[in-house]
Design a protein around this nucleic acid. Structure first.
Lengths: 136, 136
DNA sequence: ATGAAAATAAAAATCTTATTCATATTCGTT
DNA sequence: AACGAATATGAATAAGATTTTTATTTTCAT
């Protein structure tokens, strides 16, 4: 689907800031998770005249529309990534800050089971492994 | 170990704010995870003359000393609990805010295995299940 | 008891995110 | 292609959480 259509489907008017932010998220998709501040600086660096308030507003709208998801790692600010087609969890390398995505059905199933045993259903979950490279 | 000794062992001078905050964490241990603001209000309510800045400072020191651990759930502020003797993860009820602690070695082992497969060792991890009661 | 080192309270600063508001842009209808 | 209502924008400001600064007070080894 085109970015244009993606925004319309979400009931959002097609504006330059929204297109640029969506493109940014799509471009970096494999490499990175972005903070609002990072997106803001990249837009400025690219010559866009955008306000930080707009970045936050748009990211919130994207999140509500299901276009992207927000993660609260431990850096004191949220990071966003395009909503992945398949759910995944994260490893964050404490040395490099690199983010690795992974998915494990064994864990997912177990989580459901544990919640059910306590009388709950899982609405959402977050699992982040903070790791360092094994030295050998 | 006495609170007094606990502080000294951490290289922290024994002061009233530190004792009071430590007591608070110990008292509520089973029931709750506290935000800095909550601790501050409880101390004020108890007649202590303590500054919010001190609460934050002391909590940070406690965390560095390993006395307590900080969690970043999704409420916009961190919560603290005494460092548990056995590691556990959390379910947070989205209806009531209630926090349930649990531990599952099956998941823990699997996490280690997944990290190792990618060439990493786990330094820390966080797993939070956001849940709602099953209606039947 | 004394004094150096460390801790405190209060205020102000910071950082992240949200809101207000006057202006500008989108887009369905002419 | 222009109009106009609805919506979006940017700048400034506000709000909430946490940290830092600074002058004063407290701890604790002597």
């Amino acid at each position: 689907m085109t970015d244009d259509a993606e925004l319309k489907k979400a009931g959002l008017k097609v504006t330059l800031p929204r297109l640029r932010i969506l493109e940014l998220l799509e471009d970096g998709q494999e490499s990175d998770h972005f903070s609002a501040e990072e997106i803001y600086r990249q837009l400025l660096a690219a010559g866009e005249e955008v306000g930080l308030a707009t970045v936050y507003r748009v990211l919130t709208q994207f999140e509500q529309a299901g276009i992207c998801v927000r993660h609260n790692f431990q850096e004191g600010h949220a990071v966003y990534e395009l909503t992945p087609s398949e759910h995944h969890d994260h490893m964050v390398c404490l040395d490099t800050g690199h983010v690795i995505e992974f998915n494990d059905t064994l864990i997912e199933d177990r989580q459901k089971k544990l919640a059910n045993e306590k009388g709950y259903e899982i609405i959402d979950h977050s699992m982040v492994l903070y790791v360092k490279p094994i030295k050998d």
